[in-house]
Structure formats: C-alpha cells, structure tokens
Amino acid sequence: MAKSIKVTAADGTLYHIAAGYLGDATQWWRIAQLNGLTDPDLSTFVTPVTLTLPTVDASQASGVPGVSS
C-alpha cells in the first residue's frame, strides 16, 4: 500500500523528502512522477499538499532517468 504524507514549503524540496523516506535524494523524480510534479522545489506549497510516496526499491538506480553525467 502506498504511503501518503503532507508537505509544505517548510519541507524544502523533493530531494529532502526522497532522502528521508526513500534513503536516496536522487530518487526525487519518482515522487514527482507519482504526483504529477516536474519541479523538486516545494516553495510554492503555501497550504499542506498530500503526496503519495513510492515504495522503497533498492534496485532503482540513482539519478534521473535519461540524464547522464
């Protein structure tokens, strides 16, 4: 079952959320995709917004898909 959390601008960014809940800040894009977001910045969230979190998946590679260094 997917976990939901409430976030506001005070929570910083999806990087912070991913680090805390998924153990890998670079997996912020998974949270974004699941919630229809494109920007990791939460500064525009004035009121609490509910986000659905993906399950922790150790097989996920770090980084953003399609982007290489």
Rank of each mutant, 00 (worst) to 15 (best):
P40E: 00
T52D: 07
S4T: 14
T44I: 13
Q33K: 14
W29E: 05
T50N: 04
P54K: 01
S62C: 03
L14H: 02
M1H: 14
Y21S: 04
P48V: 08
L53V: 00
T50I: 11
T44Y: 11
W28G: 06
Q60N: 09
Q33W: 11
V46Y: 10
Q33G: 10
P40Q: 05
D57F: 10
Q60H: 11
P40D: 00
A61Q: 10
A61Y: 05
S43Y: 03
G20D: 12
I31Y: 02
P54Q: 05
S4Q: 13
F45E: 00
I31W: 00
F45N: 00
G23H: 03
N35E: 02
L53T: 07
L51Y: 05
G63H: 11
K6I: 15
P65A: 06
P40L: 04
L22W: 02
G63T: 09
L37M: 15
L14P: 08
L14K: 00
I31V: 13
W28R: 07
N35L: 05
T38I: 15
D24C: 11
G23W: 03
S4W: 11
S43G: 08
S43M: 06
T38W: 11
S59Q: 08
W29D: 07
Q60E: 09
V56Q: 06
L53S: 04
M1F: 14
G63P: 05
A58E: 13
A18T: 00
D24N: 14
Q60I: 12
T50V: 15
D57P: 06
D11F: 06
G66W: 08
L51H: 01
I5R: 03
A25R: 12
S68A: 13
D39C: 09
S68P: 10
T8K: 07
K6P: 10
G66P: 04
Y21N: 08
A25F: 02
L37D: 06
T47E: 15
L37N: 03
P54E: 03
G20I: 08
A19R: 09
K3Q: 14
K6D: 14
P65H: 09
Y21F: 13
N35Q: 04
G66R: 04
T13L: 04
F45G: 07
T26M: 07
L51E: 03
A58R: 15
V56F: 03
Q27F: 02
F45M: 10
P54S: 03
L51T: 01
S69Y: 14
V67C: 07
L37I: 08
S43V: 00
S68E: 11
A32N: 01
L37A: 08
S69A: 14
V56T: 09
A61S: 10
D24Y: 06
T52A: 12
P40N: 05
A10W: 01
A19V: 05
A19Y: 04
G36V: 08
I5S: 02
A2Y: 09
V64G: 00
S4C: 12
D24V: 12
H16S: 13
T55N: 13
A25G: 10
A25C: 08
G23E: 06
P54V: 03
K3T: 15
G12T: 07
S59I: 08
S59Y: 05
L37K: 04
A10M: 09
P40C: 10
S68G: 12
K6Q: 15
